[in-house]
Design a protein around this nucleic acid. Structure first.
Lengths: 354, 354
DNA sequence: TTTTTCATTTAAAACGTTTAAGTTTAATAA
DNA sequence: TTATTAAACTTAAACGTTTTAAATGAAAAA
């Protein structure tokens, strides 16, 4: 059984393909096609198992009803949750998703964007690894819809959805300070230009300033995206064995935190007595770890929701030059890893809005 | 700057679109286009930022260089890891992925398959929620390439990649038995017809039989996919408070296990002294939990790899009527939750092939 | 009877590619 | 010179839709 096309149906019924197209798009009444004919067409379509060819339709209509999604790593739960929410909402609007991993590689990301454009996606949602705005300015010039998520790009005026990284980091750091920790290290992921991470660093520094804690040099360490394990081992070794060792860690994301836990678990250091720890991004593991890990959680579903809403708007409306920049609040999830927990039950999530 | 097409380039240079097409597909020499002309075309293409329209090309060529991927839940780490591996390998062959979540809903899955076909994907990789083979038999009749992953379908002769669920479950159960546990409950996820889960159940039963342990009624409990939390609470309550309470749990997947840990963490039951636990699927959390959780791990990357290899083969070769069914071995990762660990270091992964 | 009107339906072009078959021009062989 | 061949390029159709403008035929009005 071969695939059947509009003209197959048309031939069977001795009508024109145009008529069949009209009927199957439910514009039969509007276009004054007799209901008898409409019936015939509908039935024949079902009989022949007709399925429209979206390539042809897309070519003709100039759209593909497809959205591109680019993230650094789809197997990171943070992104896969966003992806899930985006996929669901997009699907409910008749759009499907082509997803790609940039592997944190700016050049690959550009190739992916070009590939997606060749595939005629109607818009792109991207958690970018770029350090310049040029590819996006190019897209703007071509009036091609895109939304950045998670990671803003400093000098870019364009749609964006993310969280208040500064406030979240500020709150995280204060949480450590309020529990009596002063020698706090910030372990941040590379690349160094990522604005969201820089904002977290700024929030970290601001909290120290507010509490009159001098930021000693060497308290901010870079962890390479592809060498997290070794880097965490090395930096923590160093930070914990220096003359005036740290007593708290703030990590820029869940991956770094997990590696810290792994390191600490293999040493004699006790959490939180010897070293307290708090992480950006909340993941299941943190609830279950003993002691449970305090974290800043991000509203992943809301990020996905907003991104889809914005991109669909941008696709459907002609660009009017205005851009939405949505900054969502984070939540501090207080658990045990920063000091005496505020309440006894290790599994309760004491949420405080930032 | 508008998008430019082949004919735009052609017009600029006073040549035919056909020539431009030939040159840009690197068949200029083969087709005897002078190198001067080839140069001109290449340069003009670059100058006009020409990007081929894959919809048009796909329409003409009858393919889309796209593969569909359907899983129950992309935010489940098991699937997102498979997705990652599939995406990478497919991309390296010039194929991209449209992914969709079936949410464990057979009807939705069928709609997704139809959608993917309308989009003219060249093949589909699916972890199916179907309980009949009909949709796939239909695909077979239409000679449309597909590969099942993770979940086989009993009566379907078609490509499949998964693990030896029977052997894995057998080994898991033996692990409990060898540590002295005899009153073992199997918590399995619904729907009841899933072959992979049934195979795990069969492996479970076989191990009991081998060790002459009678399977008491009520030792196998169903956990609803959408009501995992409540169901686990209820069933464990019941299993642990009955006259002859269980002293070990074997869970059919990571989600159920996590919920068991959550339940046990909120009670006075100690792992593994009061209740031992072992899970199918290995996730990060299990390494970090205290005590660390013994699990059966699946070779997710290899599953992805094989699936892509098979689907690309099926796409490129005309169907020759033969099918690949790949059953990969699982690994038993011995940790602490089944009894005295075989070695002292909680973080070491003592892997034993099944 | 002829014209007008209306209800249906159709023809043809277009979207951007690719490719089989053909044409032109120039060079070579007879 | 004329026929042959080779090199370089073009034509036209096709993929499956959608849409605009036009055509058809029948009934109603003149």
């Amino acid at each position: 059984m071969k695939k059947s096309s509009l003209s197959d149906i048309a031939k069977c019924l001795n009508v024109s393909p145009a008529l069949v197209s009209i009927v199957l798009n439910n514009r039969g009444d509007e276009k004054g096609i007799s209901s008898a004919t409409q019936m015939k067409v509908m039935e024949k379509a079902k009989e022949l198992r007709y399925k429209p060819n979206m390539l042809a339709r897309g070519l003709r209509l100039g759209n593909s009803k497809t959205i591109g999604l680019i993230v650094a790593d789809i197997s990171n739960i943070f992104y896969s949750k966003i992806a899930k929410s985006i996929e669901h909402i997009a699907a409910s609007h008749g759009y499907n998703l082509i997803f790609c991993s940039s592997d944190e590689d700016p050049e690959k990301e550009i190739r992916l964007i070009e590939m997606l454009r060749e595939r005629q996606v109607d818009g792109i949602i991207v958690s970018t690894s770029q350090h310049t705005t040029s590819i996006f300015n190019l897209l703007k010039k071509e009036k091609f819809p895109f939304v950045l998520i998670d990671r803003p790009l400093p000098r870019l005026t364009g749609h964006y959805v993310g969280v208040d990284n500064y406030a979240g980091a500020f709150q995280a750091t204060e949480q450590l300070i309020e529990n009596g920790h002063k020698r706090i290290a910030f372990l941040r992921i590379t690349p160094a230009y990522l604005k969201n991470i820089n904002d977290r660093e700024a929030g970290f520094k601001a909290a120290l300033r507010k509490h009159k804690i001098r930021l000693k040099s060497g308290m901010i360490r870079e962890i390479g995206f592809n060498t997290i394990h070794e880097d965490v081992q090395r930096e923590l070794d160093n930070l914990l064995q220096q003359p005036d060792p740290i007593n708290a860690i703030f990590t820029s994301n869940n991956n770094v935190a997990v590696n810290c836990l792994e390191y600490l678990g293999s040493t004699h250091y006790k959490i939180p007595e010897d070293v307290a720890i708090i992480s950006f991004d909340d993941i299941d593991l943190f609830r279950f770890y003993v002691p449970s890990v305090t974290a800043i959680s991000q509203p992943v579903e809301k990020i996905g929701e907003s991104a889809v809403r914005i991109i669909l708007n941008a696709i459907q409306q002609p660009t009017n030059g205005s851009y939405e920049q949505i900054v969502l609040p984070t939540n501090l999830i207080v658990r045990q890893s920063c000091g005496k927990p505020r309440n006894g039950n290790m599994l309760s999530n004491n949420e405080i809005n930032s």
